[in-house]
Design a protein around this nucleic acid. Sequence first.
DNA 1: CGCGGTCTTGAGGTTCCTCAAACCTGGTGG
DNA 2: CCACCAGGTTTGAGGAACCTCAAGACCGCG
Lengths: 257, 257
Amino acid sequence: MPAEPLARSPAPPDAVLRRLSGYAPLSPDDEALLRRITARPVPVPARTELVRDGEATPRPQVLLEGWACRQRLLADGRRQIVVVLLPGDLIGLSQRRRPLPFGSVATLTTAQVCEVGPLRDCVSWGDGPPGTSLSGTGLPGSGLAAALWQARETEELWLVNQVVRLGRQTAYERVAHFLLELRERLAAVDRVQDERFSFPITQEVLADALGLSVVHMNRTMQQLRRDGLIEQRATAITLRDVPALASIADYTGARTF
Amino acid sequence: MPAEPLARSPAPPDAVLRRLSGYAPLSPDDEALLRRITARPVPVPARTELVRDGEATPRPQVLLEGWACRQRLLADGRRQIVVVLLPGDLIGLSQRRRPLPFGSVATLTTAQVCEVGPLRDCVSWGDGPPGTSLSGTGLPGSGLAAALWQARETEELWLVNQVVRLGRQTAYERVAHFLLELRERLAAVDRVQDERFSFPITQEVLADALGLSVVHMNRTMQQLRRDGLIEQRATAITLRDVPALASIADYTGARTF
DNA sequence: CGCGGTCTTGAGGTTCCTCAAACCTGGTGG
DNA sequence: CCACCAGGTTTGAGGAACCTCAAGACCGCG
């Protein structure tokens, strides 16, 4: 921990480290590498494009502070946010043989971002679950590679959740489900206190994430407030009744099962 | 090609091989391995569960014939099909440290399935794009590992497509978009002739995939037929005007860009 | 011939959307 | 200090898209 009395309140040390160590035990070397790599974050304003759509070889980056999203725009201007990215999330780690229209990545708020090219070079993904290295043990490997693998699996889970929300849930259910997912993800990087967390996005963004119009988004949020399920003040939100929300949303977190 | 005059019309040799070799050049050894592994397909009836939801270590399988899907069920019976699986698609290749609610995998039609455990053991995913092995060349590696990697990337693309369809497109657009995606995927395994391909699923399945009710699904298909965009006979479908469909759906294929 | 599964049609209702305007809040400049 | 503005939230009203319920038609199959 730094000795200087930096009074920045929203700076729980190193979101990435927290995230990844939650997936697999990291060796001191792994931790040192991560700390070194993320030592020089760069401030980025809101609405900045971090990865262009169709880039085959995006620069590997990590989001240390602030929110971002992966999104796709339709020709007529409609926007769908595919997934919201939170502190500790990795961006552009996987390269492809062919450019694919995965959508662009852009910041939603001012953010702290860090290039982590070394992660791509230093880490052998071969240690991830399907690899040979540890297949003898029958268990996924440990260390940075395993954690990165698990992070990728988790990202896929978010996509599945998003599909279910958009395909088969009502507006009310969608918001509840989405809030619970955010809560779980933010808790993993120590950003939830008493079911309360920072919520720095506009209803327009929320609407684009959940496939709704701004107006309906607004009315749905009001309903949740009236029902005593959430409470919103300034740029923070409190989930007043997590079990009720979970029941409404049919929420199955990553830890359940 | 086999010498026996097997009159089975829908048996273009080895969908997996076609799929994977489209992603990266395969060595003769790779091809031999694939052929050997998929030599003994097992027939499976429709509506058979291939992977249970939440399984951490699913058995690696490959779909050689027929259609399947990854789906998630809500407590009240609503079903969302997350992704449709076609001949040549891989199932359950990635294992996880923790069981995650990815949804179950089930056949939609009678199918030919093959267990491919060796793929998990024999292949070092470390040769995939983010690995060290070929990072010196600046290009993703070649061979089976690279192809498997690319297959995984492509699956993620299907999820993104699905999110955009469900979140921001009308029923009409969704169907058009979905049909174009199927066409492209089936073409990759040589199952499209003159924009015509087998389409063995009911409107109920289609509805569950596209987040619609059966009734509305039906009316939407009728509209597409009336507009001369598609033609359906028995269990096959013909796309009569691909450019028009692409324009309606704002379709960006995997090859475009 | 009857039967189950699928497709189709009709009618009425709900959810969600669009358009439009009002309101609120924080910041800026006169 | 106040007028003004921009961005965001809130409200109202009417309409479009989509849903549910229910029944009938079709079709392959035993």
